[in-house]
Design a protein around this nucleic acid. Structure first.
Lengths: 221, 221
DNA sequence: TCTTTTTTTATGGGAAACCGTAATTAGATA
DNA sequence: TATCTAATTACGGTTTCCCATAAAAAAAGA
């Protein structure tokens, strides 16, 4: 049963609809946060007071303004919230439509549901919340159809690390040292080369620049 | 005085808040459109019936789905609406934050107001509607401050061509031949290297991968 | 424990990219 | 046309990347 909900969403306009939607589901114990840091603070305080939230509904992207934030966005908020309260249900409500990004949320951050901001989003929200209340995950089918993955190569975290470093300007030959410093293995130069070759092979690419461009398109980096 | 308003917005969640906001301004004659074509149809019908709208509040980007549309988005809707009813007031409510795009709306399409979907958007909406009701334009100052371009390097067409080719996997050494085939000059390998170095220098980069990533972020390629 | 298999790392030769400099070409001017 | 200037191209040395192969280490199996 879901009775106490925290909404983390910077758009006032969306925030209002979320509140209304929850009320239509007879959920009245609602807190709002317009900043990620504030959201985390409320979660922490609620846990301390032993009045923790049942559900967090959060956006992914938050506009930056004068208020400097420790948490840069919804993804970081989710990770931090999971630390504080592992059993917190999390529903992401976002414009993000890229398959990889959404899958990462489910697989790495173990979210309970995702609703795309779109035409029927309010209806989807209600369905999602009802599913989550029954301790079931909500994964809308239409999201699967969004990205008909033709070149579906599934990047590992290691892959993304390498490509990110390249995209940041690190020389290939300097990557092994960096990986060792961060305790990532394998870290040998040959392993990096091998991985890069496998990725390029799978995608029919020949150059690292293509990998960077492709990952940017996917939103993987 | 604004009494009759059409909302063109595909997100149900936003639509609801807009309705609520209008009601708080004592505007109750509200119509909704979830598609651009439908919005234009309603405007046209209202004009014919001599019960035209006072104000159109519209988003810019509309998600495509099965319903094929003639109008591809808010900008086209605005242009078409102006044809049908030149005196219609138009308020754009969008996530678009690029200065050039917003200015184009004011200058070319002569919109009456623009409100960015953001933290205080509901408050801004009310201000905007009040201003427009007094036949004044609403141009929020903070939009001017949005794009403090720090790394504003202005890419030439030649720059973009080179980076695009790299991002497509062409070897640097093969680019001269390609440029010659397409009648682009300069085409010498040294000229390409020089250009790449200038770009990297200006942006503080060291590798081509960074250029590709940066241009992807900008949407330049 | 000892093999077998797999993964990771090391090495060296060749290709591409990088970088400074020199030669060439194109354009402008008198 | 001759001269000057600026832009483009060519060239050579060095670094980095690429790729095949071998060595070493780790994991799995008997």
């Amino acid at each position: 049963m879901i009775t106490k909900v925290l909404i983390a969403e910077d758009h006032e306009s969306v925030n209002i609809s979320l509140q209304k939607t929850l009320e239509e589901l007879a959920i009245t114990d609602i807190a709002h946060a317009y900043y990620c840091d504030d959201a985390l603070y409320r979660i922490t305080q609620a846990v301390k007071a032993e009045r923790s939230f049942d559900l967090l509904i959060t956006d992914l992207s938050f506009t930056q303004d004068d208020h400097k934030q420790l948490l840069s966005g919804g993804t970081e908020l989710i990770a931090a919230a999971r630390e504080v309260q592992p059993d917190l249900k999390i529903l992401v409500f976002s414009l993000e439509s890229r398959q990889v990004v959404i899958d990462l949320l489910y697989n790495k951050y173990d979210i309970d549901g995702f609703v795309l901001k779109a035409r029927n989003d309010v209806q989807s929200l209600k369905e999602a919340i009802n599913e989550i209340a029954r301790h079931r995950r909500y994964y809308p089918n239409h999201i699967r159809q969004l990205n008909n993955k033709k070149n579906a190569y599934s990047f590992s975290e290691f892959d993304i690390t390498i490509i990110t470093l390249l995209a940041q300007g690190m020389l290939q030959k300097d990557i092994p040292a960096h990986l060792q410093r961060n305790g990532i293995k394998p870290s040998g130069l040959s392993s990096i080369e091998k991985r890069l070759n496998q990725m390029k092979d799978a995608l029919g690419f020949t150059k690292n620049e293509q990998l960077v461009a492709h990952c940017k398109d996917l939103g993987a980096i």
